[in-house]
Every structure is written in structure tokens, then in C-alpha cells.
Design a binder for these strands. Sequence first.
DNA 1: TCAGTATAGGACTAAATATGTCGGAATTTC
DNA 2: GAAATTCCGACATATTTAGTCCTATACTGA
Lengths: 152, 152
Amino acid sequence: MLKLTKKADYGLIALKYLAERPETPALSAKDIADTYGIPAQLLAKILQQMTKKGILRSHAGMNGGYALARDPRVISAYEVILAIDGPFFITSCTKGARGCELTSNCTIKEPLARVNETIAGVLKSISIQDLAESEPPPAHGSGAAKLVSLAV
Amino acid sequence: MLKLTKKADYGLIALKYLAERPETPALSAKDIADTYGIPAQLLAKILQQMTKKGILRSHAGMNGGYALARDPRVISAYEVILAIDGPFFITSCTKGARGCELTSNCTIKEPLARVNETIAGVLKSISIQDLAESEPPPAHGSGAAKLVSLAV
DNA sequence: TCAGTATAGGACTAAATATGTCGGAATTTC
DNA sequence: GAAATTCCGACATATTTAGTCCTATACTGA
């Protein structure tokens, strides 16, 4: 159905959250998960995957957690989705990938490869910073921040 | 993982096949399925769905089958995918659809809606004719057509 | 140095979705 | 009327996604 997995969604949400709090040295998976009502262990794995790919830095122990490894302006949505879900192709068999399972000509694919590239291009053009800017962060800006997170 | 379902693939393949044979009054689901090694009953359902959406015309009985209801130039890949898989959104909750299941702000979605529109746009710009033209049809063109279909 | 808080990661279960099958009814042609 | 075909609901299976459990390891601070 051509949609992002929840894991990719969660990952993007977490990165956006981190991008909105550049002062914070690190946030734990649990903190972020609680804020959004995301299963904590699942989010932890997603953050771990992104750490392995160099999108996040991690730090164990008290007051540990995750922080962006780079400026949010140079982390693209494409990169994030790739890190979490692996390479995607709009068609089951894009040339370059393993051969098509369809016995004869699945000539549909070549024109659709163009679609694939377009999607990748748009995704590459969107940075985590863009996500963070799309709406003012809930607790930031004028006066006393209301740090009440609506967990669950 | 952001990919088309097999059903959508099958549907596009079938339409391409029909577009390549404008002379043929109708082709049965079985004919097409055998040509490509697609499960016949599954393809039949897909073709039925497209018939209901006005993409194909159907005719029961001997020598019946399916034919394009319109010029392949005015049938878009978008329309086909929509007919087969239903509306797709890159994010689970695009505004306009049912509310987001995430408790608090899933603000990721609005910037990603742009991606969604881009995908839809590209898909709309691709016609069945484009698919059919991407490669010369196996049996067509100069002289006596070789109508041997390489079943299985 | 020990308790508490985190990350790291393997193995597993559960839920959701996609894929494919079965059986039968209606329609049309020969 | 028989064969070919669409039509359609219900079911069965396979694959993928989502989420849980458990254990090990790393770091912090009192």
C-alpha cells in the first residue's frame, strides 16, 4: 500500500523531537517513547539502528541516552528510512536487485523505476530540521515552558 | 517498505498486455494469467476490481474476457493502483483520513504529505500507454505477427 | 564498590496484511 | 444444454510488521 512502516514513523518522530531540543545532551529511549506513547523497547531498537548508521550518538548509564550525531539539516528523511527499513523499491524487482520472480517479462518495472527515483529524491530533500520547523515545538519559546507531556 | 503490492503489479502488467493488443476484442483472465504465470483466480479478481472502477470492460461467456474501457493514454498508473489497493498514504495518518492513533503530536505527517502528493503526481503522469511503449510488444510491428505467447 | 539507569542485541510471540484457493452462481456463446 | 467465462463471498496460507522478553554490557554517582 505504499506507506511507511511504523518503525520509520517512530524514528522520524524521535529525531524531530531531538532536533527540537538541541540544548539537551541526551534523551533516553524511554523518555521519548513515553512522550509519544510508543512502545519503549521497540523505539530503543529503532534508535539503536540509527546509532549504528551514524545518525545518532548513544551514551549508556545514568543521564545517558541518544543525541543527534549531526546537524539536523544534514540528516535526510531518506537516510532515516533507509537505516530503519532498509532499501525500498516501488516494484518487487527493480533491476539491480535480485532477479524478478515473474517468469516472463515484467516490463512494468522500468517505467516505474522513475517513480522510485522521484520518491527517493523528495525524501532526500527533506531534512530532520524541516520536520522540526514544521510546527513550533510544544515546549519552547516564550516564558515558562509547559513541560507536561501527555503520556498515553 | 514503500512498495507496490503484487496485486497492483499484476494489474499493471495485465493492462499493459491489453494495451499492446488493441485489435483483440477481449482477453480472458486465464489467458493473461497463463502468459505471465500469475495465479488465474487472483488475477480474475483484480480485473474485476478494475472493471468496477471503469478501467476495463468485461464480457462473460465464450470468447469473452476483458478489454480496456478507455484509451490507454488516459488510464494512469495512479488510477490503477488506487482501484486495486485503495487509497494510499505514505504516513499512517494523513490529515483528512481517520485520526492519528498516536496520542500526541505526530507532526511528522504534514511535511511528509508533500511526499505523498509528489508520488501521486508522478503516478498520475504515467499512463498505461507509457508502460506499453517502454518496450516493443513481443508480437507487433513489421509483417506477420508472431502470436506465440510464451506461457509459463 | 554497588545500585541504578541506560544502551545493545538475540530470540520469540502476536497481530496485521498480503497472497492465494475454493466453491458456487450468473451470463453469454455455440 | 454444455462450455467458457465473469462475478463474488468465504476461507486458508504465507509473509511481514509490530511488539515483548530476557540477558548482557556500559556508565554514573553516591
